[in-house]
Amino acid sequence: MPWKKILVPVKGTAVDPDVVRLAITIGKPSKAQITAIHVIEVRWNLALDAVLEDELDRGEELLANAAKVGEQAGGTLLTELLQAREAAAAIVDTARAQGTDLILLGMPYRTRLGKVYVGRTVQDVYVTAPCSVLAYRQEEPK
């Protein structure tokens, strides 16, 4: 299926570079617009637009790294930096606002007592996304 707009949330996990490279591979044939997005989750005791210097610095660094990986893979990435109470809602709302047709999620997971655990954000995006969602599953390094 030729996707035209792909959204790639990045969070700083080991799976991020692989997801960006996969997005470039998927998006290249259809010249899709690929956007890497990072959401800073703001605690409820702070104002939503509070200036969180450390988180902003980290977010910019993650997005810059994603852009670099994208460039090395032969593509160009747009980047979006958001602040929200919950990352999943912001990702889904951005996807809706941009008309995204694919969200490509990195899905790092842990195995505990034989059960696989994935994060809350992944689950929420899966349930509420207005478009296709692909999850790139990879076990988190111990």
């Binding site: 902003l56 910019e60 929200a84 709302d93």
Partner: peptide
């Protein structure tokens, strides 16, 4: 956002500069 509690802030950064560590 889609729901009242889902408001978010979009940080529009200049294309010519990016935030580095230490402000």
């Amino acid at each position: 956002g889609r729901l009242p509690g889902d408001r978010y802030v979009r940080i529009v950064r200049p294309a010519d500069f990016r935030r580095g560590r230490g402000g």
